[in-house]
Design a protein around this nucleic acid. Structure first.
Lengths: 193, 193
DNA sequence: CTCAATTTAACGAACGTTCGTCAGTTATAT
DNA sequence: ATATAACTGACGAACGTTCGTTAAATTGAG
C-alpha cells in the first residue's frame, strides 16, 4: 500500500522539521512521486498529519499496554526498569515515539485541540494502569508505603527525563549514565531499608 | 530601543510556532511595523533568531549561576528544592526558558550546529557547578555517599521532567503534584535515613 | 473469457498566497 | 545636513491546493 509509504516518509519529515517545516513536495519526492499525487491518498496536509499522529498513538499505546499485560510478577524492580528499557527500545526502533513527543509538547497551533485530546487519552490510560500496579506493590509491601500517586508521578517523571535525553540524542554514553543515575535514586527512593 | 521590542515579539512567535512557523510579517505587525523594517535592525530571519537565542541563553545561565552563588548553605534539601522553584519561576515569568527548551530539543535543521554549541556550553556549566555542590554535600555527609555524578544526573532528570510538565502547561494542579512526587522520591533516594 | 465500464493513482499545469529578502524613497531627529 | 528608521514596491521561490487528463488496474455482465 502506497499510503503507508507516504505516511512513513511524512513521519520522518514531521519529526525532524515539525508540521510547518515539513513540505509535501519533499515528502512526495521521498516516495518517488509529485506532491499532487498525495491528494489521491489524503485530503490534505492536515489529514496526512492526523493519520500519522493516530498511527503513532496506537503504536505507543499498544506497546505499553502489551508490556503491562505481560508482566504479572511481584518484582517491581524488574518490571519498572524493564519499562524504561521498553521506552528506550521503542524510541530507537521507530520514529513514532519521537514524533509523538514533539507534537504533544509543541503542537501546530491550529491542531492543538485535536492533538491534546489524543495526548490526554493515552496519558490517562498509562497513568491509571501504572497507579494500580504501584498500589499492588504497596499493598504487598514490595515498596515503601505511600499514596500510590507519589511513586506513579515520580516514575512518570523518570520516563519523561529519559525520553528527553533520547530526543537530545547523540550521546549514547550520557543516556546510559543518566538512566542509571535516575533509576538508582528513584529505586532507592521507593524501596524499603 | 525598538530592536528589543522586535526580539520580544519574535521570542513569542518562535516559542509558539517554531522557527519555520514564525513569520516576519506577523512579528513586525505585533510591534506595529512592516516586515521589511525589521531589516533595519537585523540582517535577516536567522540573525534575529540567533540573537533571541543568545539572549535566552544568557538569561537562563545568569539566573542559575546567580542562584548557585547566592546559596552557600549546608542545607541541600532547601537549596535543591529552591532550584526547582527557581526553574518554575523562570518558566512562568518569561518566555525565554520555554523558547530555549523548544529550540534545544527541536532546532531548525539548518541552525542545529550553532544551537547545539550554545546548548552544550550552558549544560556543561550547570552540570559542573551542580556536581561540585553535590560533592561537597557528600563530603559533609549531608547526603548519602556515592559518586557525585549519580545525584547530579538524577537531579537534572528531575529538572527536565518538571520543565516538560511546564511546557505541557495547562494543569497547575498536576504540576504541583508531579513536583511534590518527584521531589519526595528523589530526596528520599539521596538522603540518609 | 471477453470486453466495455468504472475506479484508482499518478501526472503536468496552474491557482492564489505567503515567504524572506532587497532596492529605493520618505520621514524623523540629532 | 547627516544618520537612522520607517516606509512602498517589487522580487523569485516555495507553499498547499485544485483542476483536468492520462494510463493502468479492477470490476461486472454477457
Amino acid at each position: 500500500m502506497k499510503s503507508n509509504e507516504i505516511k512513513e516518509a511524512a513521519l520522518k519529515y514531521f519529526t525532524i522539521h515539525g508540521y510547518e517545516g515539513a513540505s509535501l513536495s519533499l515528502i512526495a519526492e521521498a516516495v518517488g512521486m509529485k506532491k499532487q499525487s498525495i491528494y489521491a491518498h489524503f485530503k490534505g496536509k492536515d489529514d496526512l498529519f492526523l493519520q500519522v499522529l493516530r498511527d503513532a498513538k496506537e503504536t505507543e499505546l499498544s506497546s505499553k499496554l502489551q508490556y503491562f499485560s505481560k508482566i504479572d510478577s511481584q518484582n517491581p524492580e524488574k518490571d519498572l526498569y524493564g519499562f524504561l528499557q521498553l521506552v528506550i527500545d521503542l524510541f530507537q526502533k521507530n520514529e513514532q515515539l519521537k514524533f509523538w513527543l514533539r507534537v504533544s509538547f509543541f503542537p501546530p497551533a491550529h491542531l492543538a485541540k485535536a492533538i491534546d485530546k489524543e495526548v490526554i487519552d493515552i496519558e490517562e490510560k498509562v497513568q491509571a494502569i501504572l497507579e494500580s500496579k504501584f498500589q499492588g506493590w504497596i499493598d504487598a509491601k514490595a515498596i515503601v508505603g505511600d499514596v500510590a500517586k507519589t511513586p506513579t508521578f515520580a516514575f512518570l517523571g523518570v520516563v519523561d527525563s529519559i525520553m528527553l535525553e533520547l530526543v537530545y540524542g547523540n550521546d549514547e554514553k550520557r543516556l546510559k549514565d543518566k538512566l542509571e543515575a535516575s533509576w538508582t535514586v528513584f529505586w532507592r527512593g521507593i524501596s524499603h531499608r
